[in-house]
Amino acid sequence: MKKFIGISILALLAGFSVNAQSTADKVGKDVEKGATKAGDKTAEIASKGKAGVTDKIYKDKEGPNGETIYIDKHSKYYWIDKKGHKIPIEKNKLKTKPKN
């Protein structure tokens, strides 16, 4: 009988540790997603800030989805994505901004 109780308690504790581990994995993944999202937003804001200071903003045109277009010192057109990357774009693919 003592062996049965001992084995039952051991099995119960093992079940709790597995459940705790899976919960910890879920929390870890959520934290990782949040950190990645925050890092991407920080990079986007930093890139847009730098581009706004060093490059010219093309006021009459916009990107395919309404993005702000920048012109660098080599007269190359680009916009900045949500991860802070410069995405080059050809002048003929720019859209005229709608007049409000």
Rank of each mutant, 00 (worst) to 15 (best):
I87Y: 07
T36E: 09
I87M: 15
I80G: 01
K33F: 02
D81I: 02
K3L: 10
D25I: 13
K50I: 09
K41Q: 11
K48D: 05
G28A: 11
N92A: 14
A14Y: 00
V18D: 09
E62A: 08
F16S: 15
G66V: 02
P98V: 06
Y77L: 08
K48E: 10
G15L: 11
F16Y: 09
G28W: 00
D40Q: 08
K82A: 12
A51G: 06
K86M: 08
K83H: 09
K29H: 09
G52Y: 02
K61M: 14
K59Y: 02
G15S: 14
M1A: 14
D55K: 04
S75I: 03
D72R: 07
K97G: 06
T96I: 13
L94P: 05
D72I: 03
I69H: 04
G39N: 14
T68K: 07
H74N: 15
Y77A: 06
A43E: 09
Q21P: 00
L10F: 06
F4I: 13
I45N: 04
K2E: 12
I57F: 04
I89P: 01
G34H: 00
D60P: 04
K48A: 03
T42V: 09
K76E: 12
K93A: 11
K50T: 08
I57D: 09
K2F: 08
I80V: 11
K97H: 08
G15E: 04
P64K: 15
S47M: 15
E44C: 01
P64G: 15
K93R: 14
K91D: 14
K97S: 06
A14F: 05
A51Y: 01
A24P: 03
M1R: 14
N100K: 15
N100G: 08
I45C: 00
A24F: 08
I80M: 01
G52M: 05
A43C: 00
Y58L: 15
D30G: 12
G63C: 08
K99T: 12
G63E: 06
K93H: 14
Y58M: 13
K93Y: 15
H74A: 15
S17P: 00
T96V: 14
L94I: 10
D60H: 07
K97Q: 10
K99R: 11
G6A: 08
I7E: 12
L12P: 02
K48T: 01
D55R: 07
N65M: 14
G66Y: 02
S8F: 12
I89M: 05
D60W: 00
K56T: 11
S22A: 13
H85R: 13
E32K: 05
I80N: 03
V31T: 06
D60T: 11
N19V: 11
P64R: 12
